[in-house]
Design a binder for these strands. Structure first.
Lengths: 213, 213, 213, 213
DNA sequence: AGATAAACGAGACGGTACGTCACGTCTTAGG
DNA sequence: CCTAAGACGTGACGTACCGTCTCGTTTATCT
C-alpha cells in the first residue's frame, strides 16, 4: 500500500534529467516503521474492531496526519502492518528441483509460522478482518496473495500437470482454497491457533484433490 | 444467544406445578424480531466494522437498552441475526438412506444459499467477522456450527468408515475445514460471492481427502 | 402533595350514605413511608440533579408505578420527603405571650435544626433545588412555607404593629426574605452548613428593618 | 472556569524568552462563544435539571468533546454561561466619592438587571442551582461572588466603619446575606421574578442591620 | 363464598442524555 | 514540505434513568 504511492528514502524515483521534482524532506523511514510496528501491536492487542488509529499514532509518536498521508484507511494500515512483519522474516527458499510437497509447503509456511504464537494469531486474524471489511485493504491483501501464493502455485501445478502427477483440468482456485481455507477456518471461524504439524496435511489434501483420474 | 436466557412468548418454560416463575412483562417478540431483521440489514449494508447498534435500534424502533438487555454485545447480535435468518428458511431434509454425497451437501447447502446473493454475502461476511472479533459471539457461532455441521458430519463419517468408504483414521476437523474453509476463503479473503455450482466440489474434495488407502 | 390526592389509611374519606366508593386495598402506609425515607436519603447522598427515582424505588423496595401513582414528579417527591422529615420532629411550641423574638425564632428553628447536620443540609439543599426546578414541587414548598411561616409571621407582625414596636407599613415579604434569605444564601449560594448560633441574628435584622421610624 | 485553563486567542500566555510553548491549533474563540450563548439559552428554556449538554452542543454546532475539554462539568458550563452574559454588559461604575447607598447598590444592580426579564430569571435560577448542585461549579460562582461583591463591599464597609456610620463589629457575612439572600429567596424559593424597585430596599436593610448602637 | 377492583412488586419497553472514545480533517509551529 | 501536537465537528459507544406499560399476586370491599 504505502510503498506504491511515494518512494521510501533510498529507492528514489528516477528523474530523467536534472530537473528537480520535489523539494523538502522525503517520507520519514523511522516514522513509517514506528507506525507499522505500533499498528501490528495494536492489532494483536485490540483486534480489528477496536483498532484505533489514535492509539497507533500515540504509541508510534507519530501524528495522525502522517498516518493518513501514507495510508488510505485504517484497514490498509492494518493489512500493511501484518504484511510488513511477514516480509521482515527471511523467506523460505526451496530449490525448484525439490520435492513438490516441499515446494508447496514453502508457500504456506511463512503464514503458518506467523500465526503460531498467540500474538501472531491475533494480529493476523485482525489483518484478515481488515482485509475483509475494507475494499482497498482487501486489494492490498489479494495483491500480496496473488504474488506470493497464487502465481508460484500456478507454476508448480502447471509443471506437475505436464509430469502427469496432477490432473490436466486442475483449478488454481480450488488449489488455493484447499491450501488456505483450512487456515482461515481455524483462525477466523474457530478463533483458535493453528497447530504446528499442519502444513503437510494441507499439501496432502490439495494433491489428493488434484490427483489425476 | 438470546433464546437461552429467557424464553420467548409461546415457548414458555414448563412449570411442573403451581410454582410461580416471574411476574411482570415478558420479552417482546415483536421487538426481538424487529431487532434481528434490522441487525441483518445493518450488516449487509454497513459491514461489521461500521455496524452501529444505534442505527439498529433506530431502524428497529427499539431502545439500545432493550438490545443490550438480550444480547451480550454487538457481535453477539450480529451473529444471532445471521443465524436467525438461516433458521427462518425451511431446512434441507435428506433421508438418512440417501447418497452420502447428498447428505454431506445438505450440511453446507443452507449457508451456500444464504451467501449466494450480494446482500447475503455481505451479511454473512459481517457475521463471520463479528464471530472472529468477539469471544462470546465466536462461541455462539461455534455452538451453531457444532450442532448443525460437526455433529451430523461426524455421524455420517462414522457410518462411512464402517462401510469402508472412508479411512479408519478419519479426522472430523480436517473434514469440516475442507468443507467450509474454501467458503471462508471466498467470502473473507477474496471478498467475493460464492459461485453457484460449488457444493459438489467441496464434498468431493472432502471425500477424496478422507478416502481410504 | 401526596396527602391531597387520596387519603392515607385511617383518615378515610367521609362517605355520606351507604353508597360504595371504592373497593380493593388502600394506599399502603408502609410503602409510603419507605419511599419518603428512601427519597430523603437519596437527596442527601446524591443531591438533586442525580436524584434517581429508580434508585429510590429499589431501596424502598417499591415499584416505580407506586411512586408515580402518588407523586406527580420526582421533584414533588423530593420536596415531600424533606417536609415529611420536618413534620416528624416535635414542633417547637412557644406561648403566644412569649417574647416576640422567641416567637419569630420558633418559625425558623425547625429548618435551622434540620440543616445543622451535613446530611440534613444536603437533603434540604436538594429539596430546595427541586422546588426551584419544578412548578408543582415549588407549589408544594410554597404552600408549606405559607402555612408554617408566612401566616404565623403575619399574625405576629400585625400584633406588634398595633403595639408600636413595628412600623405601620411593615411588609410581610420583606420580613420573610430577611428571615429566610440568609439561610438560602448559606445553603445554596455558599453550599455550606448553617452555623449554630444564627437564629437570634436573623430575628434581630428583621426587627431592625421593620422598626418604626 | 474556562479562561483559567488555556488562554483564549489573543490573550496568549506571556513567553519570557524564545522558548516554544505549544504547537497545534489554539482554542477556538468562535466555538467558545457559541457554546456559552447556547448554554445560557438552554438554561433559560429548560432549567437546570433538564439542562442537556447534548442539546447545547447541537445548537452551538459544537462537539460534546469540545465542551468537556474546556469545562469540567455541565454545572460549570451553566455557571460560566450566566457569568459570561453578566460580564458582557457594561459595568455599573460609581465614583468612590458617591453616596454609600449608591455604591452598595452598584454591587447588586447587575444581577438585579439580569434577573428582571423572565428569561434572565430562568437562566440565573438555573445557574444558581447548578452552583448549588456541583462542587466545582459552586467554586466558580463563589470566586466570582467574592471578587465582584464581597471584597468591594468589605472596602466600603470598612470605610464607613471609620466614618462611624457603620458599627465597629460589622460582619461581612451578615452584610452579603442580607444583600443577596432576599434575591435568592425570590428567585429560588418563590420561583418568581425579582421586582424592579428593589435595590434601595436591600441596601436599606443592610445599613439598618449594621447601623451603630 | 365468590366476584370485583385497586394497589402492589417486578421489570420490559421506547426514549433521551450521559461522559468517553475514535474518526478523519484542519491548524499551528519547528525542522 | 514533512512532521508532532492536538483542536475541531461528527457520531457511536455502553450505561443509567425517564415515565409508561404489562404482568401475576395480594388485599379489601360488595354482592
Amino acid at each position: 500500500m504505502s510503498e506504491d504511492d511515494i518512494p521510501l528514502p533510498g529507492e528514489d524515483a528516477a528523474l530523467d534529467d536534472g530537473v528537480r521534482r520535489r523539494v523538502g524532506p522525503r517520507r520519514s523511514e523511522a516514522s513509517t516503521n514506528a507506525v507499522l510496528i505500533a499498528a501490528y501491536n495494536e492489532l494483536s492487542e485490540h483486534g480489528w474492531r477496536d483498532f484505533s488509529v489514535d492509539r497507533v499514532a500515540k504509541t508510534a509518536k507519530a501524528s495522525k496526519q502522517t498516518i493518513y498521508r501514507w495510508w488510505k484507511s485504517a484497514a490498509c494500515l492494518a493489512v500493511d502492518a501484518a504484511l510488513a512483519r511477514l516480509a521482515d522474516k527471511p523467506p523460505v527458499v526451496v530449490a525448484p528441483t525439490a520435492d513438490v510437497r516441499d515446494r508447496i509447503a514453502a508457500l504456506i509456511e511463512p503464514m503458518l509460522v506467523a500465526v503460531r504464537t498467540g500474538d501472531g494469531a491475533h494480529a493476523w486474524r485482525g489483518a484478515l478482518l481488515a482485509a475483509a471489511d475494507d475494499g482497498d485493504a482487501g486489494e492490498v491483501f489479494r495483491a500480496w496473495f496473488n504474488d506470493k501464493v497464487k502465481i508460484p502455485l500456478r507454476h508448480i501445478l502447471a509443471e506437475q500437470a505436464l509430469k502427469g502427477t496432477v490432473r490436466r483440468d486442475w483449478d488454481i482456485d480450488l488449489a488455493t482454497e484447499l491450501l488456505f481455507g483450512p487456515i482461515w477456518h481455524r483462525l477466523i471461524a474457530m478463533r483458535g491457533p493453528v497447530p504446528e504439524v499442519y502444513s503437510r496435511r494441507l499439501v496432502e489434501s490439495v494433491l489428493k484433490a488434484l490427483a489425476p483420474g
